[in-house]
Design a binder for these strands. Structure first.
Length: 291
DNA sequence: ATGGTGACCTGACCGC
DNA sequence: TGCGGTCAGGTCACCA
C-alpha cells in the first residue's frame, strides 16, 4: 500500500522497534519481485537502530555492538505490501512472506511481518550505510536514479521548469507522466498525481512544456500540501492499532477525483472522465482541467 | 534518448 | 454459485 504517505506512516510505525533485538528471522518464500536474501537470519542478534525513507523505499539499519557489525535492509512495499506488527500469538497468514522476531529490554516479543499478496515488493540487503546521511551517495540499483524528495525545499515550480526547459525544445511528455517519473520527483503515485492535477486545474495530458511557471508553482504547492495532509492523517490513524489491517490508509481520506470516473466533479458538477496515460488510469474533470 | 508495452502476482469486483 | 474478464496504490526491462 504504497504511496509516499503510506511508506512514511509505516516508517513511523516502526519506531517502537528501535532499540529492540532481532531474535529470529523466518523467510517463507524465496522471492518477491527480487529474490529474498537467503541469509536474512544472520540478522539474529542485531539491534534495529534507525529507520529511514528514500522515495518509497524503507531502509532498516541494524547493528551488532558485540561484533562491531552493521547491516541495512532495503524494503519496498510494491503495490500491496505492508509491514505489520503483532504479538507472538499471531498465526502466520499465507501472505506473510518474512517474519522478524523482535525482543525488547523487558523480554516482550513482537513479530514484524512483511505481508504482500501481490509480491511486487522488494526486500534486499543494502550494501552499506552511506544513505543514512547522504541521499545521493549510493550507486545502488534502486536508489541511484531517484529524483528529488517532494517535501524537500528544493522541489519547487522552478525545479520542474528547469527540468523541462534544460533541453532546447523542452520536455513534451504529459505532465502527469512527468510528475510520476521517479527520476524527476519521487513518491508521487497515481492517486496523488490525479488529485494534485485536479486541484491545480491542469489536464493530466497537458504537455509539460506548455505549462507556465505559475502553473508549475501551483501544481507543486498542491503536491506538497496533499502529501503532508495525507502523512498527518496516516499518522493519526496509527494511534489505534487498526493500522495493522491495511484498509486504513488513504482509502479513508476523501479523494476528489481518483477512482471516481463517471461521477460528478465536486467543483463544477461535470462528469469526470478517465484517460489512460502510461498504462495508468487518470481521472480528471474536462471542464475544470481543460487541455 | 525516450515512449510505449509487457512483466511480475493475487484478489476484488462485475456481468453473464 | 461459478466463471471469465478487467482492474488495482509500483517499477524495471525491453523494444521500436
Amino acid at each position: 500500500m504504497p504511496e509516499l504517505p503510506e511508506v512514511e506512516t509505516t516508517k513511523t510505525s516502526l519506531s517502537p522497534l528501535i532499540g529492540q533485538t532481532v531474535n529470529f528471522v523466518q523467510r517463507h518464500r524465496p522471492n518477491l519481485r527480487e529474490p529474498i536474501p537467503s541469509d536474512l537470519d544472520t540478522l539474529t542478534g542485531f539491534v534495529l537502530r534507525l529507520v529511514t525513507r528514500r522515495a518509497k523505499y524503507l531502509l532498516l539499519h541494524f547493528d551488532n555492538v558485540k561484533d562491531n557489525a552493521n547491516k541495512t535492509l532495503l524494503v519496498h512495499l510494491g503495490m500491496s505490501g505492508s509491514l505489520l506488527q503483532y504479538d507472538d500469538t499471531h498465526q502466520k497468514d499465507k501472505h506473510d512472506h518474512i517474519i522478524f522476531g523482535f525482543t525488547d529490554a523487558q523480554g516482550t516479543k513482537t513479530l514484524l511481518c512483511y505481508h504482500d499478496p501481490r509480491r511486487f515488493g522488494i526486500v534486499v540487503w543494502a550494501d552499506n550505510d552511506a544513505f543514512i546521511d547522504n541521499k545521493d551517495s549510493m550507486a545502488d540499483k534502486y536508489l541511484s536514479r531517484l529524483g528529488i524528495e517532494p517535501l524537500d525545499d528544493g522541489f519547487t515550480g522552478d525545479y520542474l521548469y528547469q527540468y523541462i526547459y534544460r533541453r532546447a525544445k523542452g520536455v513534451s511528455k504529459p505532465i502527469k507522466t512527468l510528475i510520476m517519473d521517479q527520476a524527476v520527483v519521487v513518491g508521487v503515485g497515481n492517486i496523488y498525481a490525479a488529485e494534485s492535477l485536479f486541484l491545480a486545474k491542469i489536464h493530466p495530458c497537458s504537455p509539460a512544456n506548455h505549462l507556465s511557471l505559475a502553473q508549475l508553482d501551483l501544481l507543486v504547492a498542491h503536491i506538497k500540501a496533499i502529501l503532508q495532509q495525507a502523512i498527518i492523517q496516516g499518522g493519526s490513524t496509527l494511534k489505534d492499532f487498526k493500522v495493522a489491517d491495511n484498509k486504513t490508509g488513504y482509502f479513508q481520506q476523501t479523494l476528489l477525483v481518483y477512482g471516481r470516473a463517471g461521477e460528478m466533479c465536486p467543483t463544477c458538477g461535470a462528469v469526470l472522465e478517465n484517460v489512460k496515460l502510461g498504462g495508468r488510469a487518470s481521472v480528471y474533470c474536462p471542464k475544470c482541467q481543460p487541455l
